[in-house]
Design a protein around this nucleic acid. Structure first.
Lengths: 152, 152
DNA sequence: TTTTCTGCAAATGCTTTGCATGGGA
DNA sequence: TCCCATGCAAAGCATTTGCAGAAAA
């Protein structure tokens, strides 16, 4: 059983193939988003990179995210507050479970939805490129916190 | 077979019950969003109301939408461009088919998804309040337009 | 050497807020 | 009359853009 090679290696390869230049900034961002399980937003990526990479600007993060989206290596999710979140660990459509208390995001396993886009395309004549299925609510922890407070 | 009473009548009733005041502006917005099938954004509502209601400001539209959301009489959808869109005709979770060419939105019929939120809540311990299921792609018309252009 | 990328600051687009005035109840 | 709602302008926030200098290839 061999250790899989890290995802960001494949990302670098794709970058070269598509004619993008390899820069330390892109390498650093690719590493972080491909390995993170926390669905970070731009600001969060910025903070995590600052540690060992001062002098990288937020505008550059956005530019790099555009490249990674173009490569199909990250997916952008909008949760309504705090800006777009990025999923670089699973950059393909899949359901999300979003806590409106702590803004954390989970990836639940839901089978049976695989051929829904295809069936819908057939029925409507649409050409479907992507979809999203998101559930909003309170995670178990926030249910406890909120039971004696009074917000949503 | 009787004609159903217009939705906005029920909205007015709810407003009174919740202690909101009845103003001409609120009445006009409630009418438009409850009868529109086009999932308008704030700007669009603003334009449609201007016709016979000049002097209503965009800021007020937003304030009124907050009231209607609080009443559960509109649902806000985010499609990524052009700001939030509002569904006042079917203000409950249901799938959307969103054309990334013309930004129009359809409401396809998809059965069988009803108890998915409940099952997921059971499995994960989440308290699920709402969900969204959106499909992005090109409508038949935009497929034709785009076949000789070169955008997405 | 050429061309792309970065980093800063300014601009953008949507939405919200503060506050004085107007208008429901 | 008493507050709440409106309308304007300004502020807010996430994201994008323009451009000069830095750095890949």
């Amino acid at each position: 059983m061999r250790k899989e090679s890290p995802r960001w290696l494949g990302i670098l390869k794709k970058m070269k193939e598509k004619g993008y230049r390899l820069t330390p900034q892109r390498l650093a961002v690719a590493k972080i988003v491909s390995e993170s399980q926390e669905h970070p937003n731009a600001q969060r990526i910025y903070e995590r990179i600052r540690n060992d990479f001062p002098g990288l600007s937020l505008a550059t993060i956005y530019k790099i995210m555009a490249v990674l989206k173009d490569l199909g290596e990250v997916m952008e999710l909008s949760v309504g507050v705090g800006g777009s979140r990025y999923d670089g660990a699973r950059p393909y459509p899949h359901p999300h479970l979003i806590c409106t208390g702590c803004q954390r995001i989970w990836d639940p396993e839901i089978p049976m939805l695989e051929d829904l886009p295809r069936k819908l395309a057939q029925k409507t004549g649409f050409q479907i490129h992507r979809h999203r299925l998101d559930f909003f609510g309170l995670c178990p922890r926030c249910q406890r916190r909120h039971s004696w407070r009074n917000e949503e």
